[in-house]
């Protein structure tokens, strides 16, 4: 049969478990047991029966719920609920964000969402930390872990904001018009026009072997010809190079400079077919990119899914942030003021 002391300790533990560090709960319960044992011994020495002594000792010790509340140090139910909600929102937000990130990983312009990605990975990295601390303390509502996660995510996002273009957030995913969009479209049209002209010249040279056509492509000193290049790619007629996303298995070609026109002509003759194939692939990429930029509203199921993912991420992210702000305010109003007063008083002593 469960005696009064065991029942009391079980009851106390039930109110404390998961809300206070497990070591602290154990230590607290050990102290309570020692206290009750001693009181029972005293009462039995005074003539009480063991059962009656137990009952009296437990009654004198007080209501377990009230004592547990005191042991939790002013952590009221309301605050705990808020904290739980915040952690849930933060975790859910991070998980949704990771799912979203995995969904867009194949996007041709995933680099444009780098800020979001880093922000999300920041949350993802913070999650194991939250989990570890929560398991360690058996307290899923620990404020320091949330604050740490937020701070970590914030620092990462600020860092990435300086290294990427924050105004482009969502331009690809949510198809939001931005001031840079018009310039990008003009750029793309320039590439495509250059592609058409140069490809036509190359085909014509293939058919006619007219050296003047090739010389137009080669240009004047320095003379240019297509050669294989490690990760650097150039579209004809456009000074920018290496601006495309690498695609696995893709050939890498760029227009390299040669010292003599004869040398450049020879390289053209050898690499022409490969260069034409390369340009065709690049044109496909550019067209996909142009289509994506021109569509202000998601049109395909894939882009609709991306937009939905973006919206979910935005909502959960903002929700988490809002919950954290509310939590901070609640804690500041309910808990911190008395703690500050107490700390001030203790400081006066030292």
């Amino acid at each position: 049969m469960l005696n009064y002391v065991d029942w009391y300790l079980v009851e106390l533990n039930r109110h404390l478990e998961g809300k206070l560090d497990s070591d602290r709960v154990e230590s607290f319960l050990a102290e309570v047991r020692a206290h009750l044992d001693e009181r029972i011994l005293e009462l039995t020495q005074q003539g009480a029966s063991p059962r009656s002594a137990e009952r009296t000792a437990v009654r004198e010790f007080g209501d377990p719920q009230g004592i547990a509340a005191s042991a939790l140090g002013g952590t009221g139910v309301t605050t705990r609920t808020v904290r739980r909600g915040v952690l849930l929102a933060t975790s859910l937000g991070s998980l949704l964000s990771i799912a979203f990130l995995l969904a867009i990983i194949e996007s041709p312009r995933v680099h444009e969402t780098a800020l979001i990605s880093w922000l999300l990975w920041g949350s993802a990295l913070a999650l194991p930390l939250i989990g570890y601390l929560a398991i360690r303390s058996r307290r899923w509502v620990a404020v320091p872990t949330i604050a740490l996660a937020l701070a970590f995510t914030f620092v990462l996002s600020v860092f990435m904001a300086f290294t990427t273009r924050p105004f482009r957030i969502g331009s690809e995913v949510g198809h939001v018009f931005t001031p840079t969009l018009g310039r990008e479209l003009a750029d793309i049209d320039g590439w495509l026009a250059a592609y058409e002209t140069d490809t036509a010249k190359m085909r014509q040279w293939q058919q006619t072997s007219d050296p003047s056509l090739l010389d137009q492509l080669i240009g004047n000193d320095p003379w240019l010809a297509p050669t294989s290049s490690a990760g650097r790619r150039t579209l004809p007629g456009h000074p920018r190079s290496g601006s495309f996303n690498p695609v696995r298995g893709e050939i890498y070609l760029a227009l390299a400079e040669f010292d003599t026109q004869a040398e450049a002509r020879l390289v053209w003759a050898n690499n022409l077919e490969m260069y034409l194939r390369f340009l065709e692939i690049q044109r496909d990429h550019v067209l996909v990119e142009r289509r994506a930029l021109s569509n202000l509203l998601p049109s395909t199921p894939w882009s609709q899914w991306q937009a939905l993912g973006g919206a979910l991420m935005l909502i959960s992210g903002l929700g988490s942030l809002l919950a954290l702000l509310i939590n901070g305010t609640v804690l500041a109003v309910l808990g911190t003021q008395s703690a500050l007063r107490r700390r001030r008083w203790l400081r006066q002593l030292t």
Partner: peptide
Amino acid sequence: EGQLYPILHRMEDE
């Protein structure tokens, strides 16, 4: 009596 320990623990922390 039960209120004693939470107060003692707080005093220990401080």
